[in-house]
Design a protein around this nucleic acid. Structure first.
Lengths: 113, 113
DNA sequence: TCGCCGTATGTCAATTCGTTCATATTAAGA
DNA sequence: TCTTAATATGAACGAATTGACATACGGCGA
């Protein structure tokens, strides 16, 4: 296997190697899509897609511990996927923009194919 | 916290609860987006987006162990994200459809905002 | 049919991830 | 200022994921 024959020529191989995702973009994409690769996060996102909510509301609507919600929201903030706006003690969260919804819909579309 | 006040009324809460992702769709979406939430899979996908390739090519182009590539391809097959076509000993893999590319592009678009 | 090449599978150690408990922080009201 | 509600943080533990090694399978050519 050490010197296995390849089925595309070296030039093509190098070209593909140049265009493959790498570096910071690779990591940023991984983090962004991690938003959608966990049931808890998917549920939080789909809830926020319906209505902006505070942490307590999210926790109540989904039946998830407040700390768990907070931890996930922290991750979502870290990748700039949510906005938060403080109003006294309450902090309202909302989705950063429509692209997050677009991605969700693309997923649903894929499953329908 | 047991009887915490809520900031949206019960009717709205129930309505949101009804529309939040759940069940099989939730799991299927999670699996689909798992495609994009790992560096190795992202690299394989971005390589296949450029050109269909056999396992050995993918392994060589990306510098990843053949077994690792095979394991990831198995997962991708399981969620119907790739097609494979045998030609003698060689098996060529390709992306199932353009939606996978669309999703990738949405991710890039998000990062640009 | 023998050996080789391309691919797949099983297993396991290492790491990462998700959740929970305990506790801290912040703001408002009495 | 003391208390309480809303949220955040840190540590720890179990579960899930990843990648590597060994090995098996399947098709082809000598």
């Amino acid at each position: 296997m050490e010197n296995a024959a390849l089925f595309i020529d070296k030039k093509t191989r190098d070209m593909i190697g140049d265009y493959v995702l790498q570096g910071e973009l690779l990591d940023d994409l991984k983090n962004f899509f991690s938003l959608f690769s966990d049931n808890t996060r998917l549920r939080i996102i789909s809830a926020l897609a319906i209505s902006d909510m505070c942490v307590t509301d999210i926790s109540a609507v989904l039946g998830i511990n407040q700390t768990t919600v907070s931890h996930q929201l922290k991750f979502m903030r870290s990748i700039n996927a949510v906005n938060c706006k403080r109003d006294g003690k309450v902090i309202y969260y909302s989705l950063k923009n429509g692209i997050i919804n677009d991605v969700l819909l693309k997923g649903v579309q894929f499953l329908g194919t």
